[in-house]
Design a protein around this nucleic acid. Structure first.
Length: 427
DNA sequence: TCTGGGGTCCTAGGACCC
DNA sequence: TCTGGGGTCCTAGGACCC
């Protein structure tokens, strides 16, 4: 049976959401002026997270440094991000989508709907797509694009056609006309590096990709990516709409540092803060990790990582911190200044870890129990009062800017989960 | 003018084993 | 001296997504 899939994509999501809030306060609508949402405007290390359509006309691109965006467009209005607001808006539009069909949450501002087999309930899919789009706009104040197709890939490609506030289809018979003229980079999972490789082989459009020699493609991109890219170029995708999100494969936490880190002492303090927050996140999901990794980035943007596998999986702040410290010491021998540090956890399990029977308890085990009890106590306080309510002594007493920044980041995250009343819209 | 943060997946090479 | 082939696991790095 032919499938019917919608892809719903909020137009300039972060920017639209901020604009709606400001409009409701009686302020100017950011969507009609050159504007963007930018992370950390003070430090000038921030990048453009979302831009208005007028800003796009100036050449402002998502992901580019704010300084570069300002050069292209000196009148650019920059608003700070607010993840509490985004979380509330995301939930609101997905709730409307869910009232029609099962959805897969693809990201904070995108979801798929599986309308397969609903032709008796909704005889006209296009009319339904328009109704969904209009309802979101009229009830919530921001616009979406809806892509209508027979699979997720084509629905997603279709929602990316002309914006904003539009419904587009990409059915099989429309693929040559609507998909094939596009540049290869428009295709899902074809980024800059892949596009450059294809370009060198003379493949510039999705159509050329669709008809290219499979062996050539395998040579250029590897067997897996080659096959998948060719299938996508032909509009082929049979992946299902999954209602249940999969368990995460890992957890990570990283910070771009406001001041370059040059001393082991400062680096260790940051590792502690990172280890603390990343393990807390994992503990909340009831998972433990076999793998611990440390990532560092130098001023020239060179990025290095080092990882280690543990004999027993852990969710302990202390164990992760001690492991991370030893990994960092091996990784960062040259002490060149660091602009970023990260801790990630992988090799996850939810199986209970058998209690180790120590023949000679040398205090190691007692220490571990104490550390675990401390983790639980800290988690409980943070669950009630927020991440910033309690800090490890070393992080607290350090005068690093990152300690403050860190606290701020997680405040926003918690508010997002709790639904900060300040951020909430009168939906 | 420099380049966020949190993820997933893939590849290549080395170690180790049969 | 030269010397197989396959499988699995691990690590580092890169590409891509939003």
């Amino acid at each position: 049976m032919a499938r019917l899939i919608f892809h719903v994509d909020v137009n300039s999501a972060f920017l639209s959401w901020e604009a709606v809030r400001r409009v409701r306060r009686g302020e100017d609508d950011l969507r009609w002026i050159p504007s963007c949402i930018g992370g950390d405007p003070q430090t000038r290390r921030g990048v453009v997270l979302a831009k208005s359509i007028p800003a796009k006309a100036f050449g402002v691109k998502t992901g580019e440094p704010l300084a570069a965006a300002l050069r292209k467009c000196p009148s650019l209005v920059i608003a700070p991000p607010d993840f509490g607001l985004y979380s509330a808006c995301s939930k609101a539009f997905k709730d409307i989508c869910r009232s029609y069909a099962p959805i897969e949450e693809f990201s904070i501002d995108e979801c798929f709907l599986d309308l397969t087999g609903t032709e008796r309930l909704y005889p006209d899919p296009l009319a339904l797509a328009r109704e969904l789009k209009d309802r979101i706009r009229d009830e919530l104040g921001f616009t979406v694009n809806v892509g209508v197709a027979a699979n997720k890939l084509c629905a997603k490609m279709a929602s990316d056609f002309e914006k904003p506030d539009r419904v587009h289809t990409l059915f099989p018979d429309e693929i040559p006309r609507k998909l094939w003229p596009l540049p290869v980079q428009a295709l899902l999972f074809v980024g800059g590096a892949t596009a450059a490789r294809l370009e060198r082989a003379g493949i510039r459009t999705v159509g050329e990709l669709a008809r290219s020699d499979p062996r050539l493609l395998n040579r250029l991109l590897g067997e897996k990516q080659g096959a998948q890219t060719r299938a996508f170029a032909n509009g082929i995708d049979d992946s299902p709409v999954r209602e249940q999100p999969e368990d995460p494969k890992g957890y990570s936490n990283s910070v771009t540092l406001e001041e370059d880190v040059t001393t082991a002492e400062a680096a260790h303090t940051i590792l502690l803060a990172l280890s603390d927050s990343v393990t807390q996140h994992m503990r909340r999901d009831g998972a433990k990790a076999f793998g611990v990794a440390v990532t560092i980035r130098y001023l020239n943007f060179q990025t290095r990582s080092h990882q280690r596998r543990l004999d027993l999986p852990t969710d302990s702040t202390r164990t992760v911190y001690e492991t991370a410290k030893s990994l960092l010491d091996e990784l960062w021998r040259d002490r060149r200044p660091l602009r970023l540090m990260g801790v990630s956890l992988g090799g996850l399990t939810k199986e209970p870890v058998p209690e180790q029977l120590a023949l000679f308890d040398d205090g190691e085990q007692a220490g571990r129990r104490k550390a675990e009890a401390l983790d639980r106590a800290v988690d409980a306080v943070r669950d009630r009062f927020g991440f910033g309510a309690i800090q490890r002594g070393a992080v607290m007493s350090s005068r690093l800017d990152v300690a403050r920044k860190f606290k701020g980041t997680h405040e926003a995250e918690r508010e997002a989960e709790a639904g900060d009343p300040e951020s909430e819209l009168p939906f």
